[in-house]
Amino acid sequence: MVDCPECGAGVDLHDDLEVGEIVDCATCGAELEVIGEGPVDLDTAPELEEDWGE
């Protein structure tokens, strides 16, 4: 269990994480990038930009 860097809730993770893998937080839905494995460290993943006619 690692804290989500976006909302602070605990994020359940699987055992064989790899750096660069993208997971998501079940509480806030944020996409999170694994940036370290020992110990596991998460950061918010870069978002795909969308053009809604702006």
């Binding site: 998501d24 937080c25 806030c28 839905g29 944020a30 996409e31």
Partner: peptide, 15 residues
Amino acid sequence: YEDEPFVRMASGGGG
């Protein structure tokens, strides 16, 4: 709301 059965949070996450 974390323990509320009928409230979900959706706030800028993925998808």
